[in-house]
Simulated assay, not measured.
Amino acid sequence: MSDDFGSELDGKVAIVTGASSGIGEATAKSLASRGASVVLAARREGELEALQTQIEADDGDALVVPTDITNDDDIDALVDATTEEYGRIDILVNNAGYMPLTHIADADRETLQTTIDVNLTGLITLTHAVIPTMLEQESGHIVNLSSVVGRFLMENGSHYNAAKAGVKMFGDSLRLDVAADGIRVATIEPGSVATELLEHIPDDEIKEGIEEYAAGLRPLQPDDIARTITFVVSQPPHVDINEVLIRPTDQVQP
């Protein structure tokens, strides 16, 4: 295992969704480097298996569970596989995301529904499936990936803005329900990050405009967000970091 980090998470079990690339991949590596056993969840099994190989080559522990976060059966199978393999769930990183930015008048209903399903409904459903295990343990940590646009408005993204704002409200409300049971909840709100999310944008003009804007920044890297998440979940049990807004130094909009 890497000596770059300590062993604060030894014995902990973490599920990371959207682990096949970007922030999810970087977070899985970071948590494993601190000693956590990491359950890798995403649709692309080949990428997950490649990540598992990398983690295990560094003396880490990883389990691959192909998962479509919009499928209830997949969610149940992910939780079952985790508890069968490890007997507990200490950390859930709800990272899976989808950002098909477009003007609302140009969006089809499937795009609108999928945006909500991936970014919000799937997140809530998986959290719902994990909570009973954490309640039984009287401990756990839920980390939800929202976005800077869950707090500040962005053109051509009303459906995406709504989903990410919902993530923030869900996390804040969830904490009211579970804090007394030893379960911590954090919302991470990244600004511009160099990930695959831009590839989801169907409108070429909007995509080019965002790419041009991003080119004028020094964007965050997935490792930057991974370090933040690892810091949040490595705090002692009496410390609950509820919210982190993290942007490139030169990003002032949104």
Rank of each mutant, 00 (worst) to 15 (best):
M1A: 15
M1V: 08
S2A: 11
S2L: 10
S2E: 12
D3M: 13
D4V: 08
D4H: 10
F5D: 14
G6T: 11
G6L: 07
S7V: 01
S7Y: 01
K12G: 03
V13G: 12
T17R: 08
A19I: 04
G22S: 09
G24W: 00
A26Q: 10
T27D: 06
T27K: 08
S30H: 14
L31F: 07
V38W: 11
A42I: 05
R44M: 04
E45W: 00
E45I: 00
G46S: 11
E49V: 02
L51T: 03
T53F: 05
I55C: 02
D58A: 12
G60F: 00
D61C: 07
D61L: 06
V64W: 00
T70L: 08
D72C: 09
I75E: 02
D76N: 13
A77C: 06
A77M: 02
A77S: 12
A81P: 01
T82W: 00
T82V: 00
Y86L: 00
I89C: 10
L92F: 13
L92I: 12
N94E: 09
N95Q: 11
A96W: 05
M99P: 02
M99H: 14
L101A: 07
L101N: 05
H103P: 01
Q113N: 15
V118P: 08
V118W: 01
V118M: 10
L126D: 03
T127H: 03
P132I: 04
L135V: 00
Q137C: 03
E138R: 14
V143K: 02
V143H: 02
N144I: 10
N144R: 15
N144D: 14
S146T: 09
V148Q: 11
L153P: 13
N156P: 06
N156I: 03
N156F: 07
G157I: 09
H159T: 12
Y160M: 11
A165E: 06
F170K: 02
D172V: 11
R175I: 02
V178F: 05
A179W: 09
G182A: 02
G182Q: 04
I183P: 00
T187C: 11
E189H: 15
P190R: 09
V193M: 14
V193A: 06
T195R: 08
L197V: 04
E205M: 10
I206A: 06
E211P: 08
E212Y: 09
A215T: 03
Q221G: 03
P222F: 01
D223A: 14
D223E: 15
D224A: 10
D224S: 11
R227V: 00
T230A: 15
T230I: 03
V233S: 02
V233P: 11
S234N: 07
P237W: 04
H238P: 01
H238R: 12
I241G: 10
L245R: 14
I246R: 10
R247A: 07
D250Q: 13
D250N: 12
Q251R: 07
P254I: 01
